[in-house]
Design a protein around this nucleic acid. Structure first.
Length: 589
RNA sequence: GCGGCGGUCGUCCAGCCUGGUCUAGGACCCGAGUCUCCCAAGCUCGUGAUCCCGGGUUCAAAUCCCGGCCGCCGCACCA
């Protein structure tokens, strides 16, 4: 009995990931890069269908995070290669590294800081330098916890890809590990081009590179991948998000920091507004984007209950972040995997770039109503001072810094300039009310950041299923790579010719359409189901006589019949979720 | 990076232990044709693998040995 189904068992034994990856290779969604040279870890190719699907997901993200905030969030494109100065300023050269230490006898490698902390119990080792780590290891005689062997020197391993800019050049460049820096660098320009208002968001979709030590997990951990990010700049004194009200009551599942390291997560479900009010989420923008991200994932087929947010403890956050939530989704093989991070970056990045570049990145904030401030001015009594000091007076008067006078008089009763003392009586003190119209502030930043490749994979995994022993890819209709397939019921009697006319009509309408006339109709339906084509349009003998076609739904295999003249407008509505399948025509058969 | 296991048509697998009969076999897919008035049917024909790469042993290597690459699992790592 078991022998007879043995081959079938082998098929079942492959887990979902293996079946999905085999399927992805075979049908052209994605596969390992550089295959003909044996492959290289951490890089994947997207095939014809995968590329279409990824673009649709990117465009859907644009819809969610950019276009619906027209006039407030703007998309830009910036380079992948950046001069070293930029990533020194951003802190990545210093922090985007691991300290590794190798056991000299068994060859095991450890994160040096983790090892030191584990063996000594010393806290806060993350901030230690390489030398300090080396010292601790030698002073305390730390040994390999596995084999007891001696440890080698601590080595710094940078996750940044390094290159040079220009030929023969000593100019070091790094490939960006996040798209964010390009947006911080361009902040002032975008801010001014977009009429100088806060809040303002800058978005970017692009490739980033991280030289991971040991990537695994196929499309989940890559060395080069596509990131979709928004940097939302807002006035820290006015952290209100104008869109938040609409989402106040939306629910979020959140794992508090205290559980962040546990094996079993027990997320609490809480409304967005409550999470902000209780201080769980640091501001409305952060909460708003989390709700949006939740809805985005849902729209890709990842249900509410299969995803949640983890509040990352300080040690696990990036160096720039005051609060980070990871949005994780359940994947069959790896458990909960991060698909997005929501970081409150404060003014860290703009501040650092101000210091390193010397450029003022503050923006001018005009007060709603000008404020009247009491200002004390000291006007030198020229005659008195000249009378006392003679010709030296002019030079001394020029070198007075008016801003320090008040404090100096309060403290010493005089100010000393070039060895000469000037007293309060040497000045006329004028107290006046001045109208102050605004001030310069450094915006704070909230950053939602999505990994496009993981999201493509997750969407595939959630869509991948079987019906009657056949593979059906139940992708949401707006991310299915091929929207429609046109099929003549049989390949004779003029049906193919008629079908090709329908095919061209739909192509002209901008749909992504396949045409297939090979083999039996059942085989063609199966092929279309497998790559997730939502609707198959079949031309039968009746089509020729009354200009109607049947539409077949991928997920239910039910059919409706409708007029070819109505096809374009109805299908456009269908793909925009304005019509359901059953509204496309009258039931057939 | 370490250790274990693995790598054969597009895909899945057989062959490997016990080198030769393997100019590598099957199934599925794919392509051409045939049949066909709605769900991977049938029939005919066909494309497709220098057996992951490199080196070694041997008269002879898919098969044995060594190194590399890649994949999976465990450990480590995952700003």
């Amino acid at each position: 009995m078991y022998l007879s189904i043995c081959l079938f068992c082998v098929g079942i034994a492959m887990d979902r990931y293996e079946r999905l990856m085999e399927f992805s290779r075979r049908r052209g969604f994605l596969w390992p890069s550089v295959e003909i040279y044996g492959g290289v870890r951490g890089f994947i190719d997207f095939g014809p269908l995968g590329t279409l699907m990824k673009h649709k997901i990117e465009n859907k993200w644009r819809q969610f995070f950019i276009h619906r905030h027209a006039g407030l969030i703007f998309e830009i494109e910036t380079p992948i290669v950046l001069p070293s100065k930029v990533l020194e300023a951003s802190g990545h050269v210093e922090h985007f590294t691991d300290y590794l230490v190798e056991c000299l006898s068994c060859g095991r490698k450890y994160r040096a800081d983790h090892l030191v902390e584990q063996l000594t119990g010393i806290g806060g080792v993350e901030s230690l330098s390489m030398d300090e780590l080396n010292n601790i290891i030698s002073e305390r005689g730390l040994k390999c916890p596995e084999c007891g062997g001696g440890l080698g020197d601590v080595k710094k391993f940078s996750l940044l890809f390094k290159t040079t800019i220009g030929p023969y050049s000593g100019d070091i460049g790094y490939c960006r590990p996040e798209a964010a820096q390009g947006m911080f660098l361009a902040f002032k320009r975008v801010y001014e081009a977009c009429r100088g208002r806060l809040p303002i968001g800058i978005a970017q979709i692009g490739r980033v590179l991280r030289n991971e030590i040991s990537p695994r997990q196929g499309p989940i951990r890559l060395r080069e991948f596509t990131i979709m990010e928004v940097e939302l700049f807002f006035d820290p004194e006015d952290p209100k998000c104008p869109f938040f009200n609409e989402y106040r009551d939306e629910l979020l599942r959140i794992v508090p920091q205290s559980q962040a390291n546990s094996k079993v997560f027990e997320p609490i479900t809480i409304s967005a507004s409550e999470a902000v009010d209780k201080g769980m989420i640091s501001n409305e923008w952060q909460a708003y984007f989390m709700v949006l991200g939740r809805k985005f994932a849902e729209s890709l087929g990842i249900p509410f209950n299969s995803q949640f947010f983890i509040d990352k403890p300080p040690k696990e956050r990036a160096h720039y972040s005051a609060q980070t939530f990871d949005q994780v989704v359940k994947l069959e093989r790896w458990g909960y995997v991060e698909i997005a991070g929501y970081a409150y970056r404060t003014d860290y990045d703009l501040g650092r770039h101000m210091v390193f570049s010397g450029v003022d990145l503050r923006v001018y904030k005009q007060f709603d109503t000008p404020r009247v401030e009491r200002l004390t001015r000291y006007v030198p009594k020229i005659d008195v001072i000249r009378g006392r000091l003679g010709e030296k007076a002019d030079g001394i008067l020029k070198s007075i810094d008016p801003s320090i006078l008040e404090e100096a008089f309060k403290r010493d009763g005089f100010i000393e300039i070039g060895g000469v003392k000037l007293y309060r009586d040497d000045f006329n003190v004028i107290v006046e009310n001045v109208e102050v119209k605004g001030k310069h502030i450094l915006p704070h930043v909230v950053e939602p950041s999505f990994g496009a490749d993981r999201i493509v994979y997750a969407a595939l995994e959630y869509a991948y299923g079987e019906k009657n022993g056949r593979t059906v890819l139940s992708l949401p209709r707006d991310i299915a790579p091929i929207q429609l397939v046109v099929l003549p019921l049989v390949s004779k009697d003029g049906l193919p010719e008629f079908a090709l006319k329908v095919y061209r009509l739909l192509l002209d309408e901008g749909f992504i359409v396949d045409y297939d006339d090979s083999g039996s109709i059942g085989r063609r339906y199966a092929r279309a189901d497998e790559i997730g084509v939502p609707i198959a349009i079949t031309i039968d003998y009746q089509s020729i006589t009354d200009n109607t076609v049947t539409l077949r739904d991928r997920d239910t295999w039910r059919q409706v019949r409708t007029s070819i003249d109505d096809l374009p407008s109805k299908l456009h509505k269908y793909f925009n979720y304005k019509l359901s399948f059953y509204e496309l025509g009258v039931p057939f058969k």
